[in-house]
Design a protein around this nucleic acid. Structure first.
Lengths: 237, 237
DNA sequence: GCAGCCGATTGACCCAGATCAAATTTGAGC
DNA sequence: GCTCAAATTTGATCTGGGTCAATCGGCTGC
């Protein structure tokens, strides 16, 4: 785990060409504030599989995902893993009350983040209620998603879980990259299983089943949604 | 569902004798602000089983639980239910982005809440970053609990779920009412099952099993923790 | 006190999804 | 292209917890 700063100008004006400027926490800042804000953070790169932070680590930074996908997860002492979410560009990570991260995060594929040391970030927020409000919005949105996911984990069948996952993931990609029936799945089957509270075998079998039904096609690095309506029907059931 | 205002003086100085003043959102307000704040809300009572708000209802109010217990849940179209949490005194309900509640809430036993109409509350927050910060803290705390619960729902066995629930619930009661090995369980077995992603039969069998092992005693309206350490061992396993 | 009801418990059986065990495919390094 | 390792798929079997079906027990109202 040896992250390195990407930009050649450590504190340069990199917000200008930041793809997530309009969507992330930054969207609450005006041009002058953004200029000041960018001096707080630095762009950092993580290679595939690298850990950005671990559960129980003291929180020293907040992170704004710029590019790539991260898995956010918790481990039980015996190694069982539950993925509590996937982070995509625009997601903001690191908020907590205890002073420690309450989940681990690692890169799925190449990831770039904007990293803000905790203390200066906290001071910056202090007199900018707009930014605090924005962060609160993000927390509330995540809370709502977390509750939806509890319903999935506690009350849905394997078929419903997989169908719901495919639709939800597609929706996030659509919001990010525009409409498409090709759904890229950068995470492994094990990641999907640990997200849905299933085993890798069940996920694999369910994918195969969906393919045999003709509603998806399994392609390299993802799936193609052949019959979104049927998948929606399976998810709702 | 016919809630009625409890206090005889609709906008009286009821914060003075409010049991949760120090713990709830209100803890972020000074005396003068509290005086102003109490004019925004009114104490409302709900009888056992009454619904405080429903999923998909337009949010018209925020709620601060004063007394009693509420179940917070989501329903699938076919009636399956997932309880996403239990609200206790000091909990703050109603935050959302969509303008609609994203879960339903009803009273388990008699409940008193402090109800704040959305618009004036929003205006009050506007120039009180302290209150916003407090609400943000509560949201982040809930988010952390939600993630813990995802781990439970997705990766723990029935025994672990029940043991974890008993310990977690006891901890909340202890924080509220002081230490005791008597754990009051005002919610039904069905509520517990829907919280843990189990059936009522499995919950019942697990309780009986714990009792036969001598680690708990099932008493009327709750359980007595005879051997907390063994229960903790079961929860961790 | 007792009839009726509702929640909780208990028992018998079943099945969705886990586990165990091979293939098979994919990909990275040479 | 070839080799090896890792990821995925597929098959066979098992089981934790669900489902179905009686009781049981404790209130409520008469």
């Amino acid at each position: 785990m040896k992250p390195f700063v990407v930009t050649s100008e450590p504190n340069g004006h990199f917000c200008d060409d930041c793809a997530v400027r309009g969507a992330a926490v930054c969207s609450s800042l005006n041009a002058a504030e953004l200029r000041e804000f960018e001096h707080l953070g630095r762009r950092v790169h993580f290679g595939s599989g690298e850990t950005v932070f671990s559960e129980e680590d003291i929180t020293t930074s907040f992170y704004n995902v710029l590019e790539g996908v991260m898995r956010l997860y918790k481990l039980l002492p015996d190694g069982r893993r539950q993925i509590v979410g996937f982070a995509l560009p625009g997601d903001f990570l690191g908020m907590n009350l205890s002073g420690r991260h309450n989940f681990s995060a690692d890169a799925i594929g190449e990831v770039n983040v904007c990293q803000f040391p905790k203390a200066p970030f906290g001071r910056f927020i202090e007199d900018r209620p707009q930014l605090l409000r924005r962060i609160n919005e993000l927390a509330i949105r995540e809370l709502s998603q977390a509750r939806d996911h509890m319903v999935l984990l506690g009350r849905r069948s394997a078929d419903e879980k997989v169908a719901t996952f495919l639709l939800g993931w597609r929706e996030r990609l659509v919001a990010l990259k525009g409409p498409s029936d090709m759904v890229a799945l950068p995470m492994s089957r094990q990641d999907i299983a640990d997200y849905l509270g299933l085993t890798i075998e069940t996920v694999s079998r369910t994918f195969t089943k969906l393919e045999r039904l003709g509603v998806i096609e399994i392609i390299h690095g993802g799936i193609s949604l052949l019959d979104p309506a049927r998948v929606e029907a399976m998810a709702a059931a």
